[in-house]
Design a protein around this nucleic acid. Structure first.
Lengths: 232, 232
DNA sequence: CGCCCTATTGAATATAATCAACCGCCGTGG
DNA sequence: CCACGGCGGTTGATTATATTCAATAGGGCG
């Protein structure tokens, strides 16, 4: 039963071509891992151990430590994103991956032998595209931060989350924020109080509805204009 | 003469193992390209054409267009950084690469046949490390922006440039800023005027000296503390 | 020399951080 | 069951910070 559901899930996995060989005995994706809310999948500084992860359910925040024991949220990830791609060839994880809710990941063992020897060209190409895509993702995420006004960054974050949910098959207009206000604050570079005020401001402007972490975007176009700085 | 200096430069190139085969006839790096100040090496939206670039001299800014004809500087690059790594497997460039000064790049033709067929494992490994490193670089760059105060972001930028120069064999304390104040402003998400004021503030605090674009860091530790928010 | 472009400076206004108080939900333990 | 405490979140008042608009300075280049 466990096995069946596992296989069936994998067969529907959009990364099938990348993580499994053509024959059953070449299967590389080893096993699943449950990570409970607030637990770390890996921590900054740890050796990556030749593994990457694919989120099957739940969501994570990526946290970097700063000199002076402060922490920065540098990104969010949800199923079916990958985690750990940036550690290929690195001696240690640069950031920690902390589960925002009870989550499950696929562990893909990145053993060099199996990679070099058995993989098909298609898989290699897939990997390159994956890595390149991750660079673009990081750059895209960075763009969010290059705004002078915090309301622009906040609007952009809302839209970016909306896009993420849409492209993963969920509603783009109604979703639950898996992260705390503090996480958002750290991510967009404002104080936690400011997050509250901004969200309240957006609500008063009729752009969204929000109770606790349940978000409804009422006027994505207005958010778009807000992000672009064409609306105060 | 031209050929000689070209070969000699390549033999000193730190990316030798990646961009050339073991035998001379397997050489993949094709040719150099000169890009004049303010010209684009490539533009956002263009097809990448299976090429990546290695900066041999000069420097570039990476610029992304935003809805609403504004532009954002999302990064800087200098020799011997790579450009275009994020376009592997992508249909188009996500950002433009604009030369900040007269520059020269190596064009590495990313032909799939030659890549898949002729490359050595070492080269593939090198590529993965390169791509993963680029992800980390993008994330590192993003960290700079997650500060609440602009003085922290500015201090961090100064340090990050300093590190870049150091790791490329130049002085970490005296260098010339290749980018305009506007570029800096766009990059750290403040107004151009604010850049002036911040630099002046740093100067008055004795952290650096600056005339036009020639920068001398007088107190990197203070800058570090400033970036960490432990100094006003 | 004179122009243009980049950079700087000033004054007024807008924006966000900080400090402090408070609310409400949730889980814990009596 | 309820009381309690802690955490996450909100709100208010004040101060600090950054934008905006406007004017000015100064270098590089024809």
């Amino acid at each position: 039963m466990r096995i069946d559901s596992y296989r069936s899930n994998c067969e529907r996995c959009i990364h099938l071509g990348l993580c499994r060989g053509t024959a059953a005995d070449e299967q590389i994706a080893g096993h699943r891992l449950r990570v409970r809310r607030h637990d770390s999948l890996y921590r900054a500084g740890e050796h990556p151990g030749n593994r990457i992860y694919c989120i099957r359910s739940g969501s994570f925040k990526l946290v970097m430590a700063r000199p002076g024991d402060t922490e920065q949220v540098i990104g969010f990830a949800m199923a079916p994103d990958f985690l750990g791609l940036n550690t290929l060839g690195a001696a240690s994880h640069g950031a920690s991956a902390v589960a925002l809710e009870d989550s499950e990941v696929c562990v893909i063992d990145w053993d060099r032998q199996s990679f070099r020897g058995r993989r098909q060209p298609m898989q290699r190409e897939g990997l390159h595209a994956l890595l390149a895509g991750e660079i673009r993702r990081a750059q895209q995420a960075a763009m969010l931060l290059h705004h002078t006004h915090s309301r622009q960054r906040m609007a952009e974050l809302m839209l970016s989350l909306s896009n993420a949910y849409r492209s993963n098959g969920y509603s783009a207009l109604r979703f639950r924020l898996p992260m705390s206000r503090c996480d958002i604050a750290s991510y967009i570079g404002v104080s936690a109080e400011c997050v509250s005020r901004l969200l309240d401001q957006f609500r008063r402007l009729g752009m969204l509805q929000l109770q606790r972490r349940d978000l409804t975007l009422l006027d994505p176009d207005a958010l778009q204009r807000m992000a672009a700085g064409m609306e105060s």
